[in-house]
């Protein structure tokens, strides 16, 4: 009996990564639209418990497929046109810590769906809500807010120099290479 315990533990371990590969193709259109219930501030008059703001549904945070779809849509819907793979340009960067309108899933969802003054267009009625959540998941992955096992790899064109394999051989110099000899 004792021999089987590690085996069972090993099998149990495999269950943890199941959500990562989950792929939902046929997503039901949400009955109650979340666009009107998004709360973009934690402050509210009268005290008491905060009103529920829509959280990023856990599927989008845990499925590598959903985050990757978010990355595809981010480029196809030309978010890169202003945010440039997260680095920013016409629009603010998305891979840093600075969030003008909040970094919570609900905030980013509201930003995408409602738009923001000074240039952010509204995607309401132009993209289905599940795609909005996929984009939210990808945008959050840019600043490391998602587990690294679901975050997609950086695009090749986002690197500022070619890969080391494709560079000519270089000899290390100075402090990064061979320690300098004392004379």
């Amino acid at each position: 009996m004792r021999i089987h315990v590690p085996l069972v533990l090993l099998l149990l371990l495999t269950l943890f990564s199941c959500e990562r590969e989950e792929r939902r193709f046929r997503q039901a259109p949400s009955a109650a639209s979340t666009k009107d219930t998004v709360q973009v501030s934690g402050l509210h008059p009268g005290g008491g418990p905060p009103q529920g703001s829509p959280q990023l549904p856990s599927y989008y945070q845990e499925s590598a497929y959903a985050v990757n779809e978010g990355k595809r849509l981010f480029n196809q819907y030309n978010c890169s046109g202003c945010h440039a793979n997260g680095g920013g340009g016409i629009g603010p960067p998305l891979m840093d810590r600075g969030w003008i309108y909040g970094s919570e899933p609900g905030n980013i969802f509201a930003t995408v769906m409602q738009g923001r003054p000074n240039g952010m267009p509204s995607f309401r009625n132009r993209i289905p809500e599940y795609q909005g959540w996929e984009i939210v998941a990808y945008v959050r992955s840019l600043s490391g807010q998602l587990p690294s096992d679901v975050a997609p790899a950086r695009s090749d064109d986002a690197y500022f120099k070619p890969s080391e394999e494709s560079m000519p051989k270089q000899t290390p110099t100075g402090i990064t290479g061979v320690p300098e000899q004392k004379k």
Partner: peptide
Amino acid sequence: VDPQSIKPGSQMAPNP
């Protein structure tokens, strides 16, 4: 209306 039940995984989004 429902492309994902005809061709699952297709990049065409459903349009309710």
